[in-house]
Structure formats: structure tokens, C-alpha cells
């Protein structure tokens, strides 16, 4: 008690600057939890305006011709599921609804492949529940597996894709035997990497430059990354090395928004101009999911952050002013 009475009395400015850490964490916990529950109860849809780089990514993905091949390079684990998870779900929905074929590989971490399998299983369950045909491994998609030396693999892909993946096998369900992935209906027409429609990388780290430097001139590369990596990768979009970019959680919500609203013939998001849309919507389908489920919570947390920064700065200003006096 003696310590309390002897301690110098804090000014308002100092009090504002020294908010208890545990108390701040508690407020964040309560605000985020409440926002998630409210979103779940009321199915809240926070409006958004897609950025040009997300629009470009959607235009490419939405226009994959039926049977066109997309490589999905997954480089995220559950630690960045909050952003990459929603992006993966949106990507799979777009590809499966467009009838595209895709092959999944990873060179970041073996776990990524198992996580991607989980997402494919989940979207397949959703399709089954909606009465749509399931995507079948070998016929519609392939798992190429984990590559321990990604840069060298990509260098070989640049020269000869068949050489790079020649040892990769998958089970043919008709015979139950393992066969070369190039005998599967997914990759049988791919002779060169140019035969692939797009290469999509989902990552929480800086893997994209390795891809762009090696095969960026041969195939359209789209990057789906976390908000941390976005500022670095925007340069690659501006220089034309990336054809599309999806920025973290907000990018994921933008993709979901574009799936819901589409881009009309005049290039307007959600417009109704007559003619063939630049990138059509998926009306009536489940478009809003993980991205939108987190979006209100993100806004609440960011509001809290802005408030905390403002309070801290006001405190600093008050302290500095009283010192000057």
C-alpha cells in the first residue's frame, strides 16, 4: 500500500499511453468474438469494392475454358488459414463451377498438400449437397505432391514440364494402379508449360518471385497472398509480371463479391450492361463464405486499433504539452 501512496501520480496523458496490455487483449477478444457470432446469426454481408488486381485475377479464373488446365501451387499451412483458406475455397469454387481441370503441387512444406486435400474434400461435400457432380481425382484434378527443391523444379518446368514432373504418379481409379500423371485426363494434353491456362500460387511467404522469374513469361501467374506479402507483390502486378493479385482477407472478400455480382460487358462490377459479361457471376450459388464470415470482425478489430492509436497519440500530445509548460 505504501508503494501506491508514494508513487508519483500519473497525468491523463500518461494514463492514456499506458493502457494495460491484458485489458487491450481482452477488449480485442470480446469485440472479435461478438462480431463473429453476429455475422453467424444475422448473415451479415459487408459491402466492398474490388481492387483492379483482384478484378484481373477474377477475369482470368472465370474465363478458364472448360477442360483448361490450371496449376494450383499451394504454399500455406493452417497458420495463415484466415486469409489463404478463404482464397483457396473461392479458387476451388470458381474452377470447379467452370469445369476447369487443375493440378495441385507444393514446394514450400509437405503439410500444404494435406491441407489442400482438406479444402478439396470440403468443396466436394458442398457440391454433393447441392446436387452437383463431385470433382474426381485423376479425371478432374491431380495431386502432384511435394517438391523439396522448388526453384530447380520450376527451372525444369520452364524448359520441359514433362521432364520436371516425369516421376510423379497418381492412382487411376479404373485399374487401381499408379500411372504417370501425364496419362491422366488432366495433364495428357500438356506438352509445354504454355499449354497450361494459368498458374495460381497461394502462399503466406515470398515464393512468387521464384515462380515469376522462371515461368512468368510462359504462363499467366496469379498470386493469392497474405496482407503481409501484398505490398511487396504489388510491384510485380504493376510491372506486368503478375496477371492478377489477391490481397489477404480483403482480397478474398473481393473474390467472393465478384463471384456474387460478376463483371458486365462494360467492365462494371455488378452492372447489367447487355452483351457477353467480361466475367460472369455465379447467381444462386454459395459465393460468400469464409471471407465474408471474417469481414465484420476484421472491421471491428481495425476500428479498435485506430481508436487505440488515436488514444495513445492524444496521450503523447498531452504529455508533451505539459512538459513544455
Amino acid at each position: 500500500m505504501a508503494e501506491q501512496t508514494d508513487a508519483p501520480k500519473k497525468s491523463i496523458g500518461e494514463i492514456l499511453q499506458s493502457a494495460n496490455r491484458t485489458f487491450l487483449y481482452l477488449i480485442l477478444f470480446l469485440v472479435v468474438s461478438a462480431s463473429l457470432v453476429v455475422t453467424q446469426l444475422r448473415k451479415v454481408e459487408v459491402p466492398t469494392r474490388p481492387e483492379p488486381y483482384t478484378i484481373e485475377a477474377y477475369k482470368i479464373l472465370r474465363n478458364v475454358p472448360e477442360g483448361g488446365v490450371v496449376i494450383v501451387d499451394t504454399g500455406f499451412t493452417n497458420s495463415s488459414r484466415g486469409e489463404n483458406g478463404g482464397q483457396m475455397e473461392a479458387l476451388l469454387r470458381i474452377l470447379m463451377r467452370s469445369g476447369a481441370k487443375f493440378a495441385v503441387l507444393s514446394w514450400v512444406e509437405p503439410q500444404c498438400i494435406e491441407i489442400a486435400r482438406g479444402f478439396i474434400r470440403r468443396i466436394n461435400e458442398e457440391r454433393r449437397a447441392a446436387g452437383e457432380p463431385e470433382y474426381r481425382e485423376w479425371y478432374d484434378y491431380l495431386i502432384l505432391g511435394f517438391f523439396p527443391d522448388g526453384p530447380t523444379m520450376l527451372q525444369t518446368v520452364h524448359q520441359n514440364v514433362r521432364e520436371a514432373w516425369k516421376t510423379r504418379q497418381a492412382t487411376d481409379p479404373t485399374t487401381g494402379e499408379k500411372r504417370s500423371v501425364f496419362e491422366s485426363p488432366v495433364l495428357d494434353r500438356v506438352q509445354r508449360i504454355e499449354d497450361v491456362y494459368a498458374y495460381v500460387t497461394l502462399s503466406a511467404s515470398g515464393t512468387m518471385p521464384t515462380i515469376v522469374a522462371r515461368i512468368g513469361k510462359q504462363v499467366k501467374v496469379i498470386s493469392m497472398i497474405t496482407g503481409v506479402m501484398f505490398p511487396e507483390q504489388l510491384n510485380y502486378f504493376k510491372s506486368g509480371q503478375l496477371k492478377g493479385l489477391v490481397n489477404g482477407l480483403s482480397g478474398c472478400v473481393e473474390l467472393e463479391w465478384l463471384m456474387e455480382k460478376g463483371i458486365d460487358a462494360q467492365g462494371v462490377v455488378g452492372g447489367n450492361a447487355p452483351g457477353r459479361p467480361v466475367a460472369a457471376a455465379f447467381p444462386g450459388a454459395k459465393n460468400f463464405d469464409r471471407g465474408m464470415a471474417y469481414y465484420l470482425a476484421l472491421h471491428s478489430a481495425l476500428t479498435l486499433l485506430i481508436l487505440a492509436v488515436a488514444v495513445g497519440n492524444v496521450g503523447m500530445w498531452l504529455t508533451n504539452r505539459s512538459r513544455k509548460r
Binding site: 472479435v32 496482407g227 505490398p231 490481397n247 471474417y294 470482425a297 486499433l305
Partner: peptide, 22 residues
């Protein structure tokens, strides 16, 4: 960059909370 990347830190936390609550 800080402003943009703070979204990721929050998204990680929101995802954990979504996992626990929802």
C-alpha cells in the same frame, strides 16, 4: 505497409476465434 499488413495479424486471430466459437 504496416496499415496493410496489420490485416494479416488480425485475420490470424479472427481465424482462431472462428475455429473456437463457430
Amino acid at each position: 505497409i504496416f496499415g496493410s499488413t496489420v490485416m494479416t495479424r488480425f485475420a490470424l486471430f479472427i481465424d482462431r476465434m472462428y475455429f473456437v466459437w463457430i
